[in-house]
Simulated scan of single mutants.
Amino acid sequence: MTRARLAYMPLITYPDIAPDDSVSAAVAVAVALGLELHAKTFSVEIPRASSALGGVLLDLPGMIRTTEENSVVQCRRLEDLVRRKAGTAVKAECTTRKLATGLTLDAAAIQARYYDLSLLPWAKDKLTIQDLAQAVVFGSGRPAILVPPSAIPEKINHVAIAWDGTRVAARALADAMPLLADDARVTVLTIQDEKQLERGDIASALASSLQLRGLDAQAKSVLLNGRPIAEALQASAAEAGADLLVMGGFGHSRIRDFILGGATKGVFRDLRMPVLLSH
């Protein structure tokens, strides 16, 4: 019996909402990878605050009630979108959870631990959506795929691995291996002019290791030439024809603020293709 691989997709509705095209793209990635999709929409509960002037100048209870009702409506709409885009291609389960403001990020990260990976619709100008993605990537202990709205893959048969020989890169590779089909192609990307590497042939060494496992793998050296590292990696992966970039997520939390490594920060700021981040 083939075991199902479960993907988790958290979708918030306040104060930002993931764009429909990003959600649709994330569903397409689930279909391309043959994942069973479990979408969780979060509706908001706003604490009631008393104000001496609230009833005179503003109808605060009414505004809160309207915001909460709109959040529920958006949850239902997003669930319908997920089901419609999944169709009969993959099994898609959608549920809703109501949480007070400020609790959603931790709740999503904790819930993601019960799945094989997370699919995270990305939005360039919506900071809350990016905060949610960072919380899941760094708080779940599971791999996560950031999905830009432009990504509508039919298949994911070619994967690029950002490889520098570190523990985090090895973890990302291990997390990506179950997603690779038997006929998958792998391009190992190593940046040569960014930092001192353990040795000069680490990309070829990994490609040889993957070939021993029956994979069609090749090494590719990358030069920054003044480009940000995230831009260089994504451009090189796209030039190689890869459908997915796999990389380790460098970062840690300091008083609830995420301190990100250069490549990870660049991906969150300017995502150009589906990127699997593993921390």
Rank of each mutant, 00 (worst) to 15 (best):
Y115F: 15
D116F: 08
D116T: 01
D116W: 05
L117H: 11
L117S: 11
L119S: 08
A123R: 02
K124L: 11
K124G: 01
D125W: 12
K126C: 07
T128I: 00
Q130Y: 09
D131K: 10
L132W: 05
Q134R: 14
Q134F: 00
A135V: 03
V137E: 09
G141I: 01
P143F: 04
P143C: 12
I145R: 09
P148S: 02
P149K: 12
A151K: 00
I152M: 15
I152H: 15
I152V: 15
I156Q: 08
N157V: 00
H158R: 07
V159H: 07
A160P: 07
A160I: 01
A160W: 08
I161Q: 06
A162S: 12
W163M: 09
G165Q: 09
G165L: 08
T166W: 10
R167E: 05
R167W: 04
V168K: 10
R171Q: 14
A176I: 12
L179I: 10
A184S: 13
A184R: 02
R185H: 13
V186K: 06
V186N: 10
T187W: 02
I191G: 07
D193W: 00
L197D: 07
E198T: 14
R199E: 13
G200W: 11
I202P: 08
A203G: 08
A203F: 08
A203C: 06
S204L: 11
A205M: 10
A205G: 04
L206A: 06
Q211Y: 11
R213S: 13
L215P: 06
A217G: 00
Q218E: 15
K220P: 02
V222M: 01
G226A: 01
G226Y: 03
R227L: 11
P228N: 02
I229K: 10
E231C: 00
E231T: 06
E231N: 02
L233P: 02
A235V: 12
A235I: 05
S236M: 04
A237R: 06
A237Q: 03
A237C: 09
E239M: 10
A242S: 09
D243Q: 02
